[in-house]
Amino acid sequence: MAQFTMRVFRGDASGGGFKDYRVEPEEGMVVLDVIHRIQATQANDLACRWNCKAGKCGSCSAEVNGKPRLMCMTRMDLFQPGDTITVAPIRTFPLIRDLVTDVSYNYEKAKQVPPLRLKPPEPDGTYRMMQEDIDRIQEFHKCIECFLCQDVCHVIRDHEDKKRVFSGPRFFIKIASLDMHPLDTRDRSSFIQQDAGVGLCNITKCCTEVCPENIHITDNGIIPLKERMADSLDPIVWLLRKFRGPKSSQA
């Protein structure tokens, strides 16, 4: 079988460029296997992040032929033998080295999200939640924090000046998951508008398209948040929502 040519970005903050490596194909290989093969045999110092190799940890995000993907879930049989495949670091975050970027922006944004504030438990000391009331939030909890949605978000990618007041799609669904939590009592409306900047999202759905967990980030997370922000201007609507519980407030 013909070899693949892997055109891998090598470099750091001071600069760099693409370097070609030739690799023998093997049945079922994914891009991450090829990167590991290169590391083990041709370039010991090739930097990449990975952990689970099964699409569960969200560490190995990269841009493969320009498309943001998890390397561990990108099979080489997507490509023709003999093809040249480019592998580059995700573009939005500052480069550390080779395929590794500085994603600390996301960890800072994570800290800003106001956490759960529980309502009092049932008389027996426990909490009850119905499955149908948590189905949607469980969808958001599937997030593996690969930050591909953050990578493709136009606001983060192209508007350095807005990053201070913008959390990005990963944290919109985080906020939504807290806000829709059946036991939560916290009002996050000013945070959502002023600090998380949900208004800056113009719903191009790029985030949803790249989500490896197929979470409906825009439709199920961001749009309901935007709608609630419109509602939250009305204090009576907000109070009703909190007292009736999230079910009655969902579209």
Partner: peptide, 14 residues
């Protein structure tokens, strides 16, 4: 023996 520098060098880590 490892190539490259100390910045994010998986060969060195290994």
């Amino acid at each position: 023996h490892v190539d490259g520098g100390r910045t994010y060098n998986p060969g060195w880590h290994m």
